[in-house]
Structure formats: C-alpha cells, structure tokens
Design a protein around this nucleic acid. Sequence first.
DNA 1: TTATATTAAAATCTCGAAAATCTGAAAAAT
DNA 2: ATTTTTCAGATTTTCGAGATTTTAATATAA
Lengths: 223, 223
Amino acid sequence: MESENKIYQELKKRLTTDTYDHGQKLRAEVLREEFECSASTVREILFRLASDGLVHFLDQKGFRVPELSPTKLIELTHMRILLESEGAVLSIRQGGVGWEASLTAAHHKLSHLEKRIHAREDPTELVDLWFNSEKEFHQTLISACSSSTLKHMHSLIYAQFRQQLMKADRKFDFISNNIKQHNDILEAALAADEALTRKRVHDHLARHLTGQTATLASESDAE
Amino acid sequence: MESENKIYQELKKRLTTDTYDHGQKLRAEVLREEFECSASTVREILFRLASDGLVHFLDQKGFRVPELSPTKLIELTHMRILLESEGAVLSIRQGGVGWEASLTAAHHKLSHLEKRIHAREDPTELVDLWFNSEKEFHQTLISACSSSTLKHMHSLIYAQFRQQLMKADRKFDFISNNIKQHNDILEAALAADEALTRKRVHDHLARHLTGQTATLASESDAE
DNA sequence: TTATATTAAAATCTCGAAAATCTGAAAAAT
DNA sequence: ATTTTTCAGATTTTCGAGATTTTAATATAA
C-alpha cells in the first residue's frame, strides 16, 4: 500500500512519458491491483489528474489517456510561448546573480547532453535524460519570476505538452537542432535583453508550428 | 441524492461568492449531510475543486477555503491581463460579425446594470447581477479565440480572482467607475485595434494594482 | 441480410463502516 | 511553572461490497 501522493506522482510520470498509449483506458481495477490500494483511492487520483488535463474523464465511462491532438499541441505551444516569455522577462527583472548561475548550470547540462545525442552516442538511452534536462532549463528560465501562479500554470501546460509529444515516434524530430536555440535564449537572458529574450523563446517554441493554420497573436508582435 | 456535477457546480458557485469565510474548514461530514451523498463523493468533488485552485487541501488535515492573499490577487490580475489581452486580440482576428454582436450585447447588459448601480438603485441586490454580467462581458471578449486551452485557463484564473475579491466588504470599491473602461474596451475591440485593445484591457484590469510592489512585464510593454 | 431486442458480463459509481491519523486537554515529570 | 507524555474524542483516509450503468454478445424480428 503506497501513499496517495506517491501514486499520483508515479501516474503523472507515466502519463508524460510514453508508458501508455493515447486513448488507452485507465481502469481503476487494474491500477488498484498494481498499486495495492482501493479503487476509490485510484479514482481520487485520476480525478486530480483529470483536472490537471492529463487524463480524460467521461461520466459513467471512466478514465482514458487523452487522444493525440495536433490542435491541442498548437494551443499548448501557444500557451507556453505566452507564459514562458512573460516568466522569463520577469525573471530577468527579479532574479539576481543566483538565477543567472542556475540558468547557466541548467544550460550547461542540457548542452552537454545535446552534444552527446548529436554525436549519435547511444541516443535511445539519452532521450529521457534530455527531456528532463530540457524541462529543467525551461523551468529555471522562469524560476526567478515571483508569480507562483504563473509558474504553476506553466507546469500544468508543460506536462500536457509533454504528454502530447511523447509518443516514441515523435521524440526524435523534436530534439533535433536545439543547441543553438537554447544558447541564444541563455545569451539574451544573461544580457537582460527583454525583447530579444521574448523573441528567442518564441522562435524556439514555435519551431514546429511552421505551416500550421492557427495564428498566434504573439507571433506578429515578436516579428 | 444530487448528481455529482450538480454538487460540484453548487460548491463552485458558493466558493466564488461570499457564502463561506476565507480559511473556513470544509468538513466532508457536514457537506455530506447537506448534499445527501456519501463522504467519498464529497471528497472527490473537493479534490477537483482543489485542482481548480478554489479549495486548499492539506494531507491528513482536510480541505479549507483559501485564505485571502493580496499577493495572490496581484498574481491573478497579472494572469488575467496576460490571458485576456491575448484572447481579445485573437478574437479580433478570428471572430466575425457574430462575435462583435455578442460582445455588443454583453456590453449593453453590463452597461445598463452599471448605470442602475451608479444611480444607487438598490445596490445590494444588483451587485450579484453585476458580477455575473461582468464575467459574461470578459468571457465574451475572448470567446472567439480558437484556443479552448486559453479559454479554459482563463476560466480557472477568473474563478480564483472572483474568490479572492468576493468578500462583501470589498465588493463595492471594485465595481466603482467601470462604465468608461468597459466602453473603451468595446470600442477598441470593434475597431479591431489590437494594440489599443491590449492597452485598455491592461489598464482596466490593473486599475486596482496602483502602488503595488509587484511589477508586471506587460505593464511596460503597454506603455 | 439488416436492424432491433434481450440478456449476461464487465465496468463504474455510491455508500457506510473500519482503520489510521490528528488534536487538544489532562496528567505526569522536570 | 514549564515541558513532556498520555489518552480520548474528533477528523480524515482507506476499503470492499452492493447498486447502477454500460458494453457486447446472442437471439429475434423485419
């Protein structure tokens, strides 16, 4: 019998990696057995995850892993641009040398991983490490922003974004060619150039939206 | 025995009006009795509301109405500015004459109420109507934006904002002098002036933030 | 054959009670 | 007098069984 929060974290982790299939049913009885707890406990946790947007709930029909949705991915990208560029600018204003240091550190780790992957050094195993490192970099970017509401919102969006992106067959074309972009973001942030940071965060996140129908209001602003 | 969703809606309504005190304990047993359902059902609903940010949950210590927090209110205002100005601009681009019509309609109803309140016509009873009408106007403003993710996020933020603001003693000084500002927003939106709409949404929402410590990045952008 | 009705199996939902945990007051020790 | 320990009442959490609903397989009728 594991603690409720442990189970929540474990399920969240699975839902943001490619453990489950999109659209797969999450049956309380199965999870109950695996986690050695009661069905009601599982139900509570699934409700929480549903509010986080990581599982889909239908009355009398149970819980499912959300379907893949290109539209949703575009919307999530849009939200990330909105929240991360705002959070980054606020961090530039509010964060001191400590923030700069941790951002540099996060970038260094990420950069190191990216070089190893680029050199095709055992990519399959490095991919998970890369995703965690990428998450850490982007979280650190906004970490000095004083608004915990913004940071919380961002973490919700980020988790859903990952969930949409995490099918194995999509992983690789997402990772490619990020070294320069992450470098550029770091550079602009350390230079405390707010407009440039906004633009580079935008360009980085929007890199896979080319040719998409939905227009972002922030796109034209960032020219 | 009421349906689970009914109870959820009713509780949500109470939490965003001044039914409960801030910090008040929400005991499952009490709610169970009132809504004539089981404690587990109440628990499920309270977990959902906790993820919505409308109740505060502490492990082994139950559920509470969140405390009043000036900081939180500032952060929520900040998020509203971010989401609403973006949503409004997208609506200007994506909404057609139907959107313009419904925005005009929402404004007309709100405007009518504001005039009655301004004339001190039975204010206490009109206040609740005003808040609903105000909500409708702001929701309509972003309604033509295609991103349901943005709209969902906004509705979460708006509900928390209302909850922070809804103590009876704060209601009145929040309502005062909005006629012109709502007018200005409508005008800019109908003129499809994106920059002006952004600025007016910002000024309107930030009207109670004067002298506050936290700086908004969007503030300097909107000059 | 196709569509509808029937029914059994499977899954979900609700419930009240048992188990675990917390709280605060009274007793004991320093 | 102050701190620590003990303990009982109150609250929260977990649980599994029974009620309800959905699903899917089979039978019946058009």
